[in-house]
Structure formats: structure tokens, C-alpha cells
Write a protein that binds this DNA or RNA. Structure first.
Lengths: 237, 237
DNA sequence: GCTAAGGGAGAGCACCGCTCTCGTTTGAGA
DNA sequence: TCTCAAACGAGAGCGGTGCTCTCCCTTAGC
């Protein structure tokens, strides 16, 4: 594996990882604003300027953490999806939603880094696109399986799309789910935004006055959105 | 009105307002991280320490801006609701959602300040609770009117609530909509989270790969969520 | 073995939030 | 009307930040 890697290269890779680990540790404690390059360097026993050999500036370090966070929540969602019987679509759906929520609650600052306000002056670089798509792709995969299996409890309707929206959804479908009726893809998108809206409200404290703790509201809403996309009742029930 | 207000008191009130205005100006340009007390003071021709006579620290200034932002979006929602015929529930619903989205797009940094990641170490003080409730209260008001008028297109079901959730919803209903079936209130909550999830995704750039520009997706989703809560078709159509 | 690139240390710049001290101004009560 | 405490602005200063630049040592490839 590490053929041709010199000692210097290995040291660089390792230090890069250590910097990210320490940065993630501080991020988890203090949030992205509290993440200080100087503090990271201090913790690693080096001087702050040395850190710039590995990351050109603070934003690049944050970007690396963002990519890692996207991948972390993506893996969690994929595993949750794979843990259920492939034919039990509703359990898969519920597992994925629960897994994303659990990850968000366990890593609120990383969640905020990714799904909260973008860092000022910061615009998501291309590197984040693929990892960012992992969770929605899992959700779409479930809907695709439901459609392919003829299991959906509602008939997709086509009529009500404006031309531009139909085109946008068509383009999106072409890359992620060509065979899926547009109506279903739109419903999945809506469920996707609802899921993260709900999680964000919980993690950021907007549910405190209404449904907090929100565990039961969450499972209820997830079921309702599973209804909304047309998933059949759990085969196990 | 200003009986008993000394010149000093009036000057203090005015300067406090000017500080907030200038802070809001900088917030709109640079985001909350870019908001600097020193820069605000500089712009106002005073020295930074003088600013601490008016706000004990940066967080208090941010809190004032948060309250203002909640009220701003709340007013916008209330006006949009009032602008439609009271009986045309779906138009009211659509107006409110569109108004909130428009405000968010026009003031992305203020939106991020309120609905994005909470500032590190910052926990929403009580003063924000009432202003924060204005938008959801408008949504609930529409659902209440629909229920009171017998206009809803679906029958609320009661069965599927767990005890804790039923209790939470009951408590919430007691303070905002005592006569509303719990099922309807839950549906409104879900629609509320969907609305802000969708707006956050748009403002924070998470829809770039899928439905962007998202105007038409937004109106479609709003209609779908109006269906979801059971609002009847527009009486004007 | 030489040389160029890689990498750490340190000083320094301009900024930040915040505190403290020191005069000045203001306004309310004696 | 005079007094005196409170309110207020200016300035210096502390410890922190991101980032740059220079210096010097080490490493790796020719």
C-alpha cells in the first residue's frame, strides 16, 4: 500500500491527520468559531506558523472537517439502511432518519458546521459535493426500491409540474434515479428537507418551547413523511 | 410621549439604536462572525470601549439583533397572512411561506443568525422566545381557521400518538390552539419544520446540486404541505 | 556529496473582545 | 443655586486571533 512513500511523506500524512483530529476535538468542544489554529498547534506541541505547511489557511482546515463530517453522517446513513431487510422499506427509511438524527445529536458542532450557517465568506468547494449527496442518495435509493417493487401506496401524478421544475427534476432524475417518476423524486426531496429541518430545529434549540424532548415527535414525523412518499407499512407489522 | 425623558436619556436611546443599525449593516455584509464591535464603533466615530456603555458585550448586541430579526420575519409573515382574504386559507398559507422565504433570501445573514447554527457558547435568552413564536403562530392561526370553518379536507386521527407525545402536544395546544385536534397541530409542526428546512437548504446552498433556482420547487412544496395539513383548494381557483 | 525542496521556530503585523483608569459632562436632590 | 454622584467618552493596555516572513535545519533526489 505505502510503496514509494518516503518517511517524510508518511510523517506529513500522519501529521495532517493529527491536525484534523485535534481540530475536530476542539470543534466538538467549542464550535467552529472556537476553533483556533494557534490552539490546535499548541496542543500538538508545535508553533502556529508550522501548521500552515499543512493547511494554507483556516478555511481549508474547516473544509477538510466538513468533508469528513459529510462522510461520517453519510456512512452512518448507509449503514443504517443496510442494517434492515432490503424489502422492509419503511424500516430502512426509519433507520436512516434515526441514524442521521442520532449522529447530529452526538456531534452537534460538526452538524452545525455542515448544515448550519455557512462560515462567513466561505462557499462550499466542489470537494464537498459528492460526500454531501450521500444521505439524500440513501433516501432516494429506498424510494427507488419501493417504486421498482411496485410497493408504493400512492399513484404518482405528473400533471402539476411547471416546465422549469419538470426540467430541473428531470435533470436530477437523470443522474440519480432515471426510472423514478418525477412526482416521487419531488416527494423525496420534500421529505429530505423536512428531515433536516426537524433535526436542525432540534439541535439548534428551536423546539424547546414546543416538543422537547423530541424523540417521539421525531419518530412520528418520520412515519408521516414515509406515508408522504408512499412507503408501504412495515412488512414485519 | 417623551415626557420626563432627559436629553441624556434620549441621546442614549438614539445611540443604542444607531449602534444596532450599524451592527445590522455589518452583519448583512459579513455575517455574524464578521461583526466587530471595534468596526461598529469606528464607523460611529467613537472608540470601542465607549460601546460597552450600551451593550455589556458582543453577545448582548447579537441578542438584540436576533430579537429584531425574529420580529422582522414575524411581521412579514403576519402581514402576508393579513393581506389575503381570511377565508382563502390556502392563499394565506402560501403568502406566509413565500413571505418568510423572501425575507430569508433578502437577509441571508440575519436569517443565518436566527435559524442557522447558534453562536458558540450562546444560548437563546428568554427574550427571544416570544418573537421567535410569531411565524409558527401565524401558521397555526391558518390551520385553526380551517378547522373552525370545517374546511379541512382530511379527518384528523387521534389513535397513533404515544402518551408522551400526546401530552406534549396537549400542553402546546393548551397555550396556542386549545380547540385544535392534536393531529392537526402535529401536521402543522411538521409543515413548519419542512418550511424552514427548505429555506435553510436554499439559503445555505444545499440545493445547488438539485433544484436551483428553487422558486418553483418552493411553491410546489408549499402546496404539498398545504395538502398535508389538509387545507382546501384555493376558493379563488 | 551536493543541492533544492520540505518543514519547524520565532518575530511581527493588524486585528479582535474586553477591562481599567482618567477626565468631563450631566442631572437630580439639598 | 450649588453639590456630588452617576453617566459617559477617550485612551492605554492585556491576551488572544489569523497570517506572513525570515531564518535555519533536515531530508531526499540527482
Amino acid at each position: 500500500m505505502h510503496v514509494g512513500r518516503t518517511a517524510r511523506e508518511r510523517a506529513r500524512a500522519e501529521l495532517t491527520r493529527e491536525i484534523k483530529d485535534e481540530a475536530r476535538r476542539q470543534l466538538a468542544q467549542s464550535g467552529s468559531d472556537g476553533l483556533s489554529l494557534r490552539a490546535v498547534a499548541r496542543q500538538l506541541g508545535m508553533v502556529s506558523s508550522a501548521l500552515y505547511r499543512y493547511f494554507p489557511n483556516r478555511d481549508h482546515l474547516l473544509t477538510a472537517l466538513i468533508v469528513d463530517a459529510y462522510n461520517a453522517v453519510g456512512v452512518v446513513a448507509e449503514n443504517a439502511n443496510a442494517a434492515a431487510a432490503p424489502t422492509d422499506l419503511r424500516v430502512r427509511w426509519g433507520n436512516v432518519c434515526q441514524a442521521v438524527r442520532a449522529w447530529a445529536r452526538a456531534h452537534p458542532h460538526e452538524y452545525a458546521l455542515v448544515y448550519g450557517s455557512p462560515v462567513p465568506g466561505y462557499h462550499a468547494p466542489e470537494i464537498t459535493i459528492v460526500p454531501a449527496a450521500r444521505v439524500p442518495l440513501v433516501l432516494v435509493a429506498i424510494v427507488r426500491d419501493a417504486w421498482a417493487g411496485g410497493a408504493l401506496t400512492l399513484d404518482p401524478m405528473q400533471a402539476s409540474f411547471t416546465p422549469l421544475l419538470a426540467q430541473q427534476i428531470g435533470n436530477l432524475a437523470a443522474t440519480v434515479a432515471p426510472e423514478l417518476p418525477q412526482d416521487l423524486l419531488v416527494r423525496a426531496l420534500i421529505a429530505w428537507t423536512q428531515l433536516f429541518g426537524m433535526i436542525s430545529f432540534e439541535v439548534f434549540g428551536h423546539l424547546v418551547g414546543s416538543v422537547d424532548p423530541s424523540d417521539e415527535f421525531f419518530v412520528h414525523a418520520v412515519e408521516r413523511m414515509a406515508d408522504f412518499v408512499g412507503l408501504p407499512p412495515s412488512s414485519q407489522g
